[in-house]
């Protein structure tokens, strides 16, 4: 079931078309990666989901209902460019932002106390934001994003500004929230964390959706008939038997084990490759190479530019 659906969303700014009939459907309970190069329209789409800007055309649904202002209290948003009132005290400010999301004063106090205890930052309550380090401010910002326990959480580059220890902690918290039933939209340029966290992705560029779907299927779809063969023996021997149905991509050596990546051309099958190699070298491993998200990203965006 989808928690959020955007159908044929079109948004034009004065000078550019930011979204050109983009559709996304975000399955409930998962982590959804929203990818795309700078200026692709990600932020615009996120702002439309948050009802910060209204689309020119297209329809939006939250849990099957047409998106309406009431849904705001069910969405949490951590923007890429974050900020807090510098002169305001941490506690007061957290309370204010939590109450703006529709929490009652007592509820807000209770839940903030839980989070402040959890992050062990109770002492900050009466300090002004400007006295905190950037990492500390990010923690406060994270808390005010999730304090109203929304069903849909949107994180735009959530790990920027954190040191590796805190980034790991945030990652853990995000996964925790997902376990408790929240759906997460995750926008980032860090493909490593996409592969690690996301189960669905949508890649948009120049206002259009280029690929969308479960990450495993996409990697499967973008595989390039490339196989990695590990063997004991001479590379020369392998090279000499490969004809123009094969292309040797990469060679590496680890002690007495050699690994090569070979792409199959002209509809050759993996069995044909195996039977070609077996007589000449001692094969230790043989598996298909799936492209990583980084490669897919670059390939898809480049192809889109070319077209």
């Amino acid at each position: 079931m989808e928690i959020f659906t955007a159908d044929q969303v079109f948004k034009k700014f004065i000078h550019t078309t930011a979204l050109d009939r983009v559709s996304v459907s975000i399955p409930k309970g998962g982590i959804f990666g929203l990818l795309g190069p700078n200026g692709a329209g990600k932020t615009t789409l996120i702002r439309i989901i948050n009802q910060i800007t209204a689309p020119d055309e297209g329809s939006l649904y939250f849990k099957g209902e047409k998106l309406k202002p009431d849904h705001i209290s069910n969405i949490g948003y951590l923007p890429e460019e974050r900020g807090l009132y510098k002169k305001m005290k941490v506690g007061e400010q957290s309370l204010y932002l939590a109450r703006l999301k529709g929490l009652s004063k007592t509820d807000a106090q209770q839940r903030l106390k839980y989070w402040f205890d959890k992050f062990e930052i109770q002492d900050w309550w009466n300090r002004k934001v400007e006295e905190l380090s950037k990492g500390m401010q990010q923690k406060v910002q994270f808390i005010v994003t999730v304090v109203h326990e929304p069903e849909l959480l949107i994180f735009d580059e959530p790990f920027s500004g954190f040191d590796p220890i805190n980034a790991e902690m945030m990652k853990k918290e995000i996964l925790n929230l997902q376990e408790k039933g929240a759906t997460i939209i995750f926008s980032t340029h860090n493909m490593g964390s996409v592969e690690e966290l996301c189960d669905h992705i949508s890649l948009i560029d120049q206002g259009r959706t280029l690929i969308e779907g479960p990450i495993d299927k996409i990697r499967e779809q973008y595989k390039t008939d490339t196989y990695e063969v590990g063997f004991q023996g001479d590379v020369q021997a392998v090279q000499s038997v490969l004809n123009d149905h094969y292309k040797l991509l990469d060679t590496s050596r680890e002690k007495d084990l050699t690994k090569v990546q070979i792409r199959l051309l002209h509809h050759t099958t993996d069995n044909e490759l195996l039977s070609l190699l077996v007589p000449h070298v001692h094969i230790v491993s043989f598996n298909e190479v799936y492209p990583n998200m980084n490669d897919i990203f670059i390939r898809v965006v480049k192809e889109n530019k070319g077209s």
Binding site: I52, Y77, P79, R82, G83, L84, Y85, L97, L100
Partner: peptide, 17 residues
């Protein structure tokens, strides 16, 4: 201007119009 420069504006207007 302060809200704009602080970048808190986006957080606030994701809660209110």
């Amino acid at each position: 201007i302060e809200e704009k420069v602080n970048r808190i504006i986006e957080v606030v207007i994701s809660s209110v119009k």
